[in-house]
Design a protein around this nucleic acid. Structure first.
Length: 267
DNA sequence: ATTGTGGCCTGCCCGC
DNA sequence: TGCGGGCAGGCCACAA
């Protein structure tokens, strides 16, 4: 599920508890903490110590990372893997702030946090790929996709020998782009995903930048990383054809990810 | 150092 | 229907 636009929605999900204190924590699956350098027992107690009684002061998003700033100068950081999401009191927010109810699935709940006033925040995660960390190094992430400008984008490209798709998905360079949005940016930007980043200049770069801007606006307006033209037209599938060119969409591996693109108009 | 690959984990879908 | 293989929008450790 989650690329930047979904995590934006998760941030909106959490925001109603800003100003509330945490009254209970239930870590159902300690694998949530698996990135800890120390053993699970030690790390879990640290998490309980930091969260217990703390007041939520702010909720931020950088790329696909959700950051909850707490009283006591600590920050809880959540990632959601492929199939993770948050609900508050049985509701999930969209990127535009509207909310909808969602049925909880108890077997997939990995974390539950209670707040004063009776609010309950739940993290569900089908694949157990979500993580919780305290006080992560935020500088490991690049500029957020919504904040990057063309000057920085051009600069990033010119300095990288990676494939353009690999660069787009490299969270240390640009934070927030996943496999689907990368494919859509390249589709809109008319660039072959396998090209070397630093080779993209001039008109090609203009097109790609337009593709990035178009895509980030579109998925935000429509509330989902799966709202790109390539997917919505049904073309991001084996054997389907490009809605613009009517040639068969190509399917290749780039940067370890399955990649769909139009061999006709993406050059 | 940078870039690319394999594997984690579970659930689902497709083809036999 | 039942079963095995392939695959999933993320991320990390590791190899070249």
């Amino acid at each position: 599920m989650p690329e930047f636009v979904e995590v934006e929605a998760y941030a909106n999900t959490v925001r109603p508890v800003i100003g509330r204190a945490i009254s209970g924590i239930d870590i159902r699956d300690e694998r949530l903490l698996r990135r800890a350098d120390e053993g699970f027992e030690v790390e879990a107690s640290h998490v309980y110590g930091v969260l217990g009684g703390a007041v939520v002061e702010a909720v931020r998003r950088i790329g696909k990372l959700l950051l909850v700033d707490l009283s006591g100068e600590h920050t809880m950081a959540l990632t959601f893997g492929l199939r993770g999401w948050l609900m508050l009191d049985g509701e999930i927010a969209r990127a535009d702030g509207t909310r909808r109810r969602r049925e909880a699935q108890a077997e997939h709940v990995r974390l539950a946090i209670e707040f004063d006033g009776g609010h309950r925040l739940v993290l569900e995660d089908l694949l157990r790929l979500a993580t919780l960390e305290i006080d992560v190094d935020e500088t490991r992430l690049g500029t957020d996709i919504l904040a990057i400008d063309k000057t920085e984008f051009r600069e990033l490209l010119s300095r990288s020998r990676a494939t353009i798709k690999g660069l787009l998905m490299d969270q240390r360079r640009i934070a927030g782009i996943g496999n689907l949005i990368a494919d859509e940016i390249l589709y809109q930007g008319k660039v072959d995903p396998r090209r070397t980043a630093s080779d993209i200049e001039g008109e090609d770069l203009d097109h790609l930048w337009t593709g990035l801007r178009t895509t980030r606006e579109r998925v935000l307006e429509r509330n989902g990383s799966h709202q790109g033209v390539l997917i919505q037209s049904g073309s991001r599938e084996r054997g389907e054809s490009c809605p613009r060119c009517d040639v068969e969409i190509a399917r290749v591996k780039v940067g370890g990810r399955t990649t769909y693109f139009c061999p006709e108009h993406q050059r």
